[in-house]
Design a protein around this nucleic acid. Structure first.
Length: 289
DNA sequence: AAAATCGTCAACCGCACGGGG
DNA sequence: CCCCCGTGCGGTTGACGATTT
């Protein structure tokens, strides 16, 4: 037996919203706010709608800060990058795209980006700027915008240059991590949007010892990540000591993928950085966002 | 020109979570 | 500690316009 529905579906209007309904909802919220209770809102606003429907309409369409229109390439980059790391955490991904909703991002991924990447996978020699991806056998990843560029550099300088050109201007803070060796952790620690991007709430505890081959990655415990979990660095300094100039070599396939999440199969890789890195250096914990 | 197919996106569904009683 | 209820989220559906045959 499932739980009772939130409202009587025979008594509420369903389907597309009319301009009048939009106006009524906007007016009510403008003057009264939600009152902390969406369920009780519709009758007060003179709407014959389910509270959940009102909430959805407001959040996905009526909010004044909603950005309508096509996604930019930069936004695509961010979506792909984050999806590759955390999968379908649409709300988290959308939080990094001002004006975009989780529904927007999800739709955009399902209708455009996923197909684009699938097409690219079936045609690995295609032009990267067109297909927005790069499929490198030795790295066995098929995601578009690698976070861990140093590993890419080790494989193919030409490709590295291409990827660097492609990602650096659009994702500066991620590239800071990518380059790892000299990035300034302060920019991440004190910027809520950046820490949020990494799934970390209360960012003040977050930072890196970011000198000389120190880097950072995601990992997971077990083979899946629950819907309510996020990944965060447990330590104030999440870092590991590489073995000098070849610091990344020891990380091999674990870091080589750079992506615990297989974009195409939808599976989390069993290879984790923790295989190659002492757990005391990179401890991953579940934390609510 | 009409029918079929495809693509997009708003909206719905149902589950999980968390807070309050 | 348990239960109830509201909220948030991801997955899915279906309407509708665009494109192709």
């Amino acid at each position: 037996m499932g739980r009772a529905p939130c409202c009587d579906k025979t008594k509420v209007k369903r389907g597309p919203w009319s301009p009048d309904e939009d106006e009524a909802l906007k007016n009510y919220l403008h003057t009264h706010g939600t009152g902390g209770n969406w369920i009780a809102l519709p009758p007060k606003a003179g709407l014959k709608r389910c509270g959940k429907s009102c909430r959805l309409r407001w959040l996905n369409y009526l909010r004044p800060d909603i950005k309508h229109g096509a996604f930019t390439e930069e936004e695509d980059n961010i979506i792909c990058n984050l999806y590759s790391k955390m999968g379908s955490r649409w709300s988290v991904i959308a939080a990094q795209l001002p004006g975009r909703t989780d529904n927007d991002v999800k739709n955009h991924w399902n209708t455009k980006l996923k197909k684009k990447l699938l097409a690219a996978k079936s045609n690995p020699t295609s032009n990267m700027n067109e297909e927005s991806t790069y499929n490198h056998a030795s790295l066995h990843f098929s995601t578009p915008y690698p976070v861990f560029v140093p590993k890419v550099e080790a494989c193919d300088p030409g490709v590295s240059a291409l990827l660097n050109q492609f990602t650096a201007p659009t994702m500066p803070f991620l590239m800071d991590v990518n380059y790892g060796q000299t990035f300034n952790s302060q920019s991440m620690v004190h910027d809520p949007s950046h820490s949020s991007l990494l799934g970390i709430s209360g960012s003040s505890e977050f930072g890196f010892g970011a000198k000389n081959s120190h880097c950072f990655t995601w990992s997971e415990e077990g083979s899946s990540i629950s819907g309510s979990s996020s990944l965060a660095m447990d330590n104030n300094y999440g870092s590991w000591s590489g073995n000098g100039a070849g610091g990344y070599e020891g990380l091999s396939m674990g870091l080589g993928t750079g992506f615990p999440y297989d974009l195409m199969s939808g599976n989390w890789s069993q290879e984790t950085v923790l295989e190659a890195v002492p757990s005391s250096y990179a401890t991953m914990v579940n934390k609510p966002l």
